[in-house]
Design a protein around this nucleic acid. Sequence first.
DNA 1: TAGTTATTCTATAGAACTATGGAATAATGG
DNA 2: CCATTATTCCATAGTTCTATAGAATAACTA
Lengths: 225, 225
Amino acid sequence: MGPDRVFKDAIYEQIARIGRAVAHPRRLELLDLLCQGPTTVEALARKSAMSVGSTSQHLQHLKDAHLVRVEPRGAARIYRLTDAATCELFRSLRGLAEHYYADMRAITEAFLRDREALETLDVATLQQRMDQEDVILLDVRPVEEYAAGHWPGAVSFPLDTLTDRMAELPRDRTVVAYCRGPYCVLAMHAAEVLRQHGFRAVRLADGVPDWRSQGLPIAKGGDPR
Amino acid sequence: MGPDRVFKDAIYEQIARIGRAVAHPRRLELLDLLCQGPTTVEALARKSAMSVGSTSQHLQHLKDAHLVRVEPRGAARIYRLTDAATCELFRSLRGLAEHYYADMRAITEAFLRDREALETLDVATLQQRMDQEDVILLDVRPVEEYAAGHWPGAVSFPLDTLTDRMAELPRDRTVVAYCRGPYCVLAMHAAEVLRQHGFRAVRLADGVPDWRSQGLPIAKGGDPR
DNA sequence: TAGTTATTCTATAGAACTATGGAATAATGG
DNA sequence: CCATTATTCCATAGTTCTATAGAATAACTA
C-alpha cells in the first residue's frame, strides 16, 4: 500500500469518526437532548429511557469523537456539547433526513393525527401574535432546560406540572406550548391535554436550538415570576 | 413500550440512516469522488482502489440512504449524488473533522512535508494573480471530471499525462495545479513533479465542490483548446 | 472513616456490518 | 444468438459494535 493510500485512509478515517458517532439512534437522541443544555448522565438516561450504563457508554463514544465534553461538578459530571457546531451538526442531519425521507413527515403526521394535535404554529406567526398579546407561551420542558435557555417571555410550565397548574392559564387567550423541537412530544401532549380541558391550545414546532441557530435572542436563568 | 418511545425511535432511526451511511471511510471516499461528478461503479472502484464488488455494495448503502441515485446508461449505471445537499453534507463533515481533530492538519502537513510541497494557494490570491496573467492554472484530474465542471480558464492536464506534456508549459509563469480538493493527492504530486523539473509550481487546495459551494462560477464541457 | 451517590469500567453474548470471491443478471455488439 | 461488459446478488467468515449486569472508582456526606 503506497503512501497516497495511507494518507487517504488516514484522512477519511478522521471524517468517519464523526460519521460513526452519529450512526446510532440513541446517540442522536443524546445529542438532541444535549442541545437543550448541559446535564448529567443520570438525567440523560432518564429522559432517553436508557440504562445509566448504556448512556455513559454512548457518551464516551461522543466524547471520543469530540462532539461532547465533560467536566466534574461535585460527585457528578456535567456533559455538554463541545460547541455550537455540534448542535448544528445534529440539526443539519435532522434537516437532511426531513429532506430525503418522506417517512419523517409521515411518522410525525400519524403521531399528531392520533392525538388530534395537528395544528402547529411557526415562529413568524407566533411573534406577530405575541405582539398582539392574544397568546400565552408555555415552555413545557423540565425546569433545568428552561433555565439553560428559553424564549424571552415564555413561562416555565413543565409538562408534569400541567394538570396541577392548569387553573393559572387564561381561557380567553390561545395557549402556545413549545418544547425541545419539532420531534419532541412534550408540547404535543401539552396541547392535547389543554384542548381536552377546553383551552385553545396549539404547539410550536421549533425549539431553543432552532431559534438560536436563526440568531433569535434567547433568555437565560430562572422563571422571573 | 409506549407510543412516545415508538415515535421517538422511529424519528431517530431515520436520522441515523444518514449517520450510518457516512460512518465508513470508504463510503466517504465515494461521496468525495461523486462530488466531482457522475460516474460508473468501475471508475469509482479504480479511483478508490476498491474491488468492484465492494464498491457496488457501498454504493447500495448510499443509495438506500438516498444520498446517491443511479440511472442506467447502456450496459453501465451512472451514479450521482442525489442533489447538492449531499455534497454539502460531505463538506460539512470534512469541515467538522478539521475543526475537531488536530490529526487532520498533522496528517496533511506530514504528507506535504515529505514531498516538499507545503506551499498552498488560496482562491483569493489565485483570482488576483489570474487577472495579472502571471499564472497558468492546471486541472490535473481525469478528463471526465474536468468535463463535469472546472474552473473557468483552467487547462485540463491530467496527472498521468503531465510528464509527456510538460513541454507545453511556460517556464516564465507560475504553474498552479488543483484537483478534487484539500485532501486529494493529484495536485500535490503535480506540483512536486513540476518543481523537480524546475518549474515554479504550487498547488491550490480547494476544488470544484468548494468553489461551487461558495457560489463561484464553474465551467462545463470539454477543454476549449 | 465509613457509607452514599454518580459514574465508568469490564466481560460477555449477541447483533450488525464488512470484505471476498464466485454465480447470476442484464444490456450491448458482432 | 452468443460473447462481452458492467454490475448486482449471495454465502461466508471475520470483524466491529451494542446491551447488559455487576465490579470498580471517585467524590462527597454524615
